[in-house]
Amino acid sequence: MKNIYDIKVAWGDTDAAAIVFYPNFYRWMDQATHELFEAAGYPASKLQKEEQVILPLLETFCQFKSPLVHEDRVSIHSEVTEINNKVFKVEHQFRKGEQVVAEGYEKRAWTSTAEGKPKAAPVPSFIKNVLLQ
């Protein structure tokens, strides 16, 4: 499953050089992952309340190709590209028009909170089926 999340760079997203401060790409990847799950019918609030599941971040990476500045409009193209037993990978591509300005990924754990203490759990097949279509 793929999802596109659009943003407009705000003034506060930039640094003293007037370009986007790099941690914002990681913040946007996090938001884009939540948007992807919401588009799949599993928003974070539903996962947490009904399924007793959270999706903690295990690893992240971003490669910057071209700077963004205030008021740029960016589309974040996100897709789950890999699901192992308890861990899945979401790849993100940042596009300004047709230009790829950054690419990155997140690895997250499917984590149950049913017993109080978070514990990695197998990703259910019904979730795999939705995310890998």
Rank of each mutant, 00 (worst) to 15 (best):
M29F: 11
L47Y: 01
G41S: 02
K46M: 12
V90S: 00
Q31R: 12
K86M: 11
R108H: 12
E115N: 15
P56S: 07
E79K: 12
I127G: 02
S78L: 01
F94T: 00
P118E: 04
V69G: 11
F88G: 04
I7N: 04
E79M: 10
Y5K: 04
N24V: 07
P122A: 01
E98R: 11
E103R: 07
D13P: 06
K65S: 03
Y5W: 13
R73L: 10
E59R: 09
I83Y: 13
A102Q: 06
I7E: 05
F21R: 09
I7G: 06
V69W: 14
H92P: 00
K96C: 12
V74H: 11
V100P: 14
V101E: 07
H77D: 08
A121W: 10
E103K: 10
A114C: 09
F88C: 06
K119Q: 15
S78P: 02
K46E: 07
V9G: 01
G97T: 13
L68F: 04
P118Y: 06
A17Q: 07
P118R: 02
M1G: 14
H34Y: 14
P56A: 08
A39M: 02
E91A: 04
L68R: 00
A121Q: 08
L58G: 12
I19C: 05
T111N: 07
I127S: 04
V87Y: 09
P56W: 06
S75E: 06
E71T: 14
E103Q: 13
K8V: 01
F61P: 03
D72K: 12
V74Y: 12
P56G: 08
Q63R: 15
F94M: 04
D15F: 13
N85I: 02
L68K: 00
S125E: 15
P23Y: 05
I127Y: 13
E82C: 10
E106L: 10
E35D: 08
A39Q: 06
H34N: 12
H34Q: 10
T113S: 07
E103F: 10
E103H: 07
T60V: 13
G104E: 00
N129D: 15
S78W: 00
C62D: 06
K46A: 08
I76Y: 03
L57P: 14
V9H: 02
V9Q: 03
L132K: 04
N85Y: 08
I19F: 04
H70R: 08
Q133R: 13
V130S: 07
Q48M: 15
K49F: 10
N129C: 08
E82D: 15
K107Y: 08
A32I: 01
L47P: 07
N24F: 03
R95K: 15
S45G: 04
K86N: 10
V90R: 00
V74G: 03
Q99L: 13
N24L: 03
T60L: 09
I76K: 00
M29S: 01
F88R: 11
A10I: 05
Q48P: 07
P124H: 02
E59P: 02
H77L: 13
E82T: 14
I4R: 09
I76D: 05
K65N: 03
L55I: 14
T33A: 11
P118T: 06
F37I: 04
T60C: 09
S112P: 00
H34K: 05
I7V: 14
F94L: 03
V90H: 00
E106V: 08
K128F: 15
S78C: 04
V69M: 13
K49R: 14
K89W: 03
